[in-house]
């Protein structure tokens, strides 16, 4: 699948962008509905979904920017940036899909509401990050350079996780 994605960049880019926004809404819609009710006293689920989709589009714009900043910061110049961003978006979409699927458990039993709110996103992000590393380290790095790539990716991952706990 990844290989097919890489063969037709333009079509893949739009497909992945749409997938990213759709999965973003799938993973975050409940928070959006709640936020709309709490802060705007509005009950419209369509407005909530629209707000969620808008947030997804904003994230879609920010992702490539952040990735480029990180690659420059860690002086990793050997990867094809556009394709790397495409893969990042694809695996982020995969993580969101996992988070959204786990959130469905909340409809079966609310017992896990508190645990789910804290752990589901963490699980989705972790699985996506591991798979993203596994793929990109094979595609763009060799046995000599992989250690440097892993170190920096691990730093980014753990900083994000720590911020997730603190915030």
């Amino acid at each position: 699948m990844i290989d097919k994605l890489r063969q037709n960049y333009r079509a893949s880019l739009w497909a992945v962008r749409i997938l990213f926004v759709v999965t973003f809404v799938f993973a975050q819609w409940r928070e959006s509905v709640t936020a709309l009710m709490l802060f705007m006293n509005n009950n419209s689920i369509w407005l909530a979904l629209a707000m969620c989709a808008l947030s997804g589009i904003i994230a879609l714009v920010l992702y490539p920017f952040v990735i480029n900043v990180l690659l420059n910061l860690f002086r990793i110049y050997s990867v094809p940036r556009a394709e790397y961003v495409l893969l990042a978006l694809f695996y982020a979409s995969f993580g969101q899909l996992i988070t959204g699927a786990l959130n469905c458990i909340l409809f079966i039993t609310p017992v896990v509401v508190t645990w789910g709110a804290i752990l589901f996103n963490f699980i989705g992000t972790t699985v996506a990050a591991v798979m993203f590393y596994a793929k990109t380290s094979k595609l763009y790095f060799n046995d000599i350079t992989r250690v440097y790539y892993f170190k920096n990716l691990a730093i980014v991952y753990f900083v994000v996780m720590i911020l997730g706990v603190i915030l």
Binding site: T114, W115, I118, L119, F122, F158, V165
Partner: peptide, 10 residues
């Protein structure tokens, strides 16, 4: 508890 679990997993 879930926060502790998350920290432990991390």
């Amino acid at each position: 508890w879930p926060v502790i679990a998350r920290i432990a997993i991390t």
